[in-house]
Design a binder for these strands. Structure first.
Lengths: 339, 339
DNA sequence: TTGAAAGCGCTAACAT
DNA sequence: ATGTTAGCGCTTTCAA
């Protein structure tokens, strides 16, 4: 717009100082919001900044302050493979949104096996002030000890709880499963079975427990428990087995929507209908849930919120605030037509 | 592992120099792969680097070299809203994967309206060496002129071709639509209609053109053209209209899968069946395509590859290489049961 | 081929 | 409340 913008190189703090007639230190104070600057000096500096369209140089700032104002989001390869998992995609969105309100920047690290320690070096090499890690896998110890050298927040589907990982944000899987079971009971169902997830994955364990506890409180016991691997095919297989053992089942809670959809087909194959003969509740509220036939009643995961919460937690951690070791986000039941 | 690692602060280039018995300049040369270093000196330096587990400090490097080795991926808010668009998610994955082979780092900028110029400042403030922008929208001029100050590669669903944007990577929409139309012709269909996308979006235009051209070459003309907005509902409406005008239609090409799915329901409502009465081909090969009933024949978009190509193009641009202004990625037809 | 020296743009004591 | 002065860790002329 104006002449100063046509100058080749970016304006520096020094130029601002000269223009405002103060020292560089003062400009730095103003830029960093130090309280010990007189109002008139501050506004003079602000004017100069605006006039020159000054933007601080990050590299210089990091070098001097030893802080990068960047955080990493590490996506283990196994997760990358399911990158089109809507849950994950939405989580990234939450992270980005939360960070937009801060001075922090997001570095995405898609970890491919070939570069596994490139990632570690990057993280440990002072390139970021902290990191977020999303993992689907229990056995993933690779980042557990990272938290000794760097603020880390785990999230998504967190590690096995036996590992003392410092900070994690998770969805309240247990409570969600309980909501699902209670809903089925309220609908008058009595022979309620479940298609659980793998027991080596925390969500698998928690969702099964929440389900079982709720039934017990209702004075019922599961009409069957079969395990799947969260895939639609495994859901169909599990449903078939459930039906073989007890053809009179009148409801089923699947530990995720994909398995619920698989169950749909097994139910149809058995000549039964949803929800008339068998009510079905899923978990995740993924893209398939709403458009399934019939639309699936399911437990909604607040994924955007989870990403945002992870980001906020990490930022607080970096700034030295006290933060709870684990944050559990509430789920909510979305009632559609499968119950 | 060893004693030096327990030392509080990270090893510096200076420490490496001392240990290798050379100057800092030499270490810098080795680290940066300069050719003018004698082999023995180089290996001594490499040993020292390994022994100390030295990792160069990025901030210092950027400050001195005026390069950041970071690239941004800007996601306009409108796109963020459809973040769970599998196409986009996969594209990000491709970008990440391609970058993993380089020295570059990915900064994700989810742009929220409130911070729109925060993004511009960030990009122009020397925080990145270049940027990738994904956009669904024609009218989005905000980044068009960015390319005057910074290497930029547009991608995904690029801007209106009337804007002279320097570099873009796109899927070959025209060719893809042609493949779809030719397939229908080969299947013996003769009354072929299309549910086109909006004419203010490049994919809408290109897919319609590719379709029409192919029919013309086959000596046919469209049995009908209706426009939708890429949503399933609009696909259903369009299909209904198509059927009203010409009940004898025996095939339809929808400009995306979502509209094809919408068409499915309109076809069913009309008492017709897919593919017996009407063959349907979509475009995108999204998550719904494979699981639709019947599974949808569609044009596959190489989204991972597109992300990777965008990243590679940008890196080349940054390194000063010559790169083509537009790269068109080939699509492929995935034949399933709807034709 | 190697080293010396001068910054890159900023922050953070320390003075004043 | 403001200025002075050192660096932060690296790259890069320029000499040797």
């Amino acid at each position: 717009m104006n002449a100063s913008m046509t100058s080749g190189s970016a304006p520096t703090l020094e130029m601002v100082a000269a223009r405002a007639g103060v020292s560089r230190a003062t400009v730095s104070r103003v830029v960093n919001g130090s309280p010990k600057v007189s109002p008139d000096v501050a506004s003079a500096v602000h004017e100069a900044i605006a006039a020159l369209n000054y933007v601080p140089n990050r590299a210089a700032r990091s070098l001097a302050s030893r802080r990068t104002h960047a955080i990493a989001l590490v996506v283990p390869e196994s997760t990358a493979r399911v990158f089109n998992d809507p849950f994950f995609a939405t989580l990234v969105q939450g992270v980005g949104l939360a960070l937009a309100d801060t001075e922090y920047t997001l570095s995405m690290l898609l970890e491919s096996e070939a570069h596994i320690d490139k990632t570690r070096r990057y993280l440990l090499g002072g390139n970021v002030d902290g990191t977020l890690v999303v993992s689907h896998h229990t056995g993933d110890h690779s980042y557990a000890n990272l938290s000794r050298s760097l603020p880390v927040v785990f999230g998504g589907r967190p590690l096995d709880s036996t590992e003392r990982v410092n900070h994690t944000v998770d969805v309240d899987n247990t409570r969600g499963a309980t909501q699902a079971a209670e809903h089925l009971v309220e609908r008058g169902r009595r022979r309620i079975a479940t298609i659980a997830g793998p027991l080596d994955m925390p969500p698998g364990v928690d969702r099964l427990r929440g389900f079982a506890d709720a039934l017990e409180r209702a004075g019922l016991s599961p009409a069957g428990v079969e395990h799947g691997d969260f895939s639609p095919a495994s859901g169909a297989v599990a449903m078939r087995r459930l039906l073989e053992r007890d053809p009179a089942i009148d409801a089923v809670f699947a530990a995720n929507d994909q398995m619920a959809i698989g169950a749909y087909s097994a139910i149809a194959d058995a000549g039964r209908s949803v929800p008339h003969d068998i009510a079905v509740v899923g978990f995740d509220d993924d893209r398939y849930a709403a458009t399934a036939m019939p639309p699936l009643t399911t437990v909604h995961q607040p994924s955007v919120e989870m990403g945002a919460e992870m980001a906020r937690t990490l930022v607080r951690l970096i700034e030295g605030e006290e933060v709870p070791e684990v944050t559990l986000l509430p789920t909510s039941l979305v009632v559609r037509e499968s119950t």
